[in-house]
Amino acid sequence: MLKLNQKEVLMKKPLSVVLSSVMVSALFLPVNAAAYKVVEVTNGGTITGQVTFAGSEADAKKHTKVYTITKDTDVCGTGKREINYVKVNKGALNDVVVYLDKVKKGKAWPEDEKNATIDQKGCEFLPFFTVMANKGELTAINSDPVAHNIHTYAIIGKAKKTMANVSQPVQGSQVTKTVKLKKRSTGLKVECDQHDFMHAFVFVAKNPYYARVAEDGSYTIKDIPPGKYKVKVWHGYLKDPRAKQVTVKAGQTKTVKTFEYKNKKK
């Protein structure tokens, strides 16, 4: 009996069967998410709320890490450097962003919030926490008379993935990189490969519906088109609470139940 190989079998199949197989396979190919669309928002709704920390300020200080300065002490200082990864103000957690997830269309991005700049001064990242837009530009400036090496990582759950690793050997050097994070990541950890005591965080927004909390933990997100949304929070160091489902009505203000962070690292 004549045996046919796999290629010959495929060639002998009816054209309709082959096309059907191709169409079925296409259903399982990855599809790129639609880009955010800017539309006019009239009589939009508002979301407000607060972000708190379940522990005391003493509990927050347990997340402070102490590093020994052993290099470039004439610029970086001497002794120890403390990094407060969890900052609490009278029960309110700071350095947190509240945002709406997977918003397809709405208000325009504020131009002054699309990009971000981090300065390296006194062997410290300034600011320690900042916000920018996905596909925006992150600029790093070296204001010190010593070499720095800025290293950015996308935070993906408990893992980190290198996004940029650039040497800045001289004072005044400046580097700008476009930040493009995939859906599983919403923030960056920033470190210096020259100085292990330099750390910072960047929240990378996928749409303009976000707010950095105030010192008292409060936040407000405005001009939201009516609809159902998933509200999330992001802290670079602590494990984020579960999202909350919220229905926003035209012209109305919705207060979201308080997000409470437990005393748990990511």
Rank of each mutant, 00 (worst) to 15 (best):
N5P: 05
Q6M: 13
K7Q: 14
E8K: 12
L10N: 11
L10Y: 15
A26E: 07
A33D: 01
A35R: 13
E40T: 14
V41P: 03
T42C: 03
G44W: 02
G44S: 01
T48S: 07
T52N: 11
T52C: 11
E57I: 13
A58Y: 12
K61R: 15
V66D: 10
K71Y: 06
K80F: 13
R81M: 10
E82G: 05
Y85M: 09
Y85G: 00
K87A: 05
G91K: 06
D95Q: 11
K114D: 01
I118N: 01
K121E: 12
G122K: 09
E124G: 08
F128E: 15
V131S: 06
M132E: 06
N134T: 13
N134H: 13
G136H: 02
I141R: 06
N142F: 02
A147E: 08
I150E: 00
A154T: 05
I156E: 02
K182A: 15
G187A: 07
D196F: 12
H199Y: 12
A200H: 00
F203S: 04
N207Q: 08
N207C: 08
Y209M: 04
H235N: 15
H235S: 14
K239G: 08
Q245R: 14
T247Q: 12
V248Q: 01
A250K: 14
G251N: 04
K254M: 07
V256I: 10
T258D: 09
K264M: 11
K264Y: 05
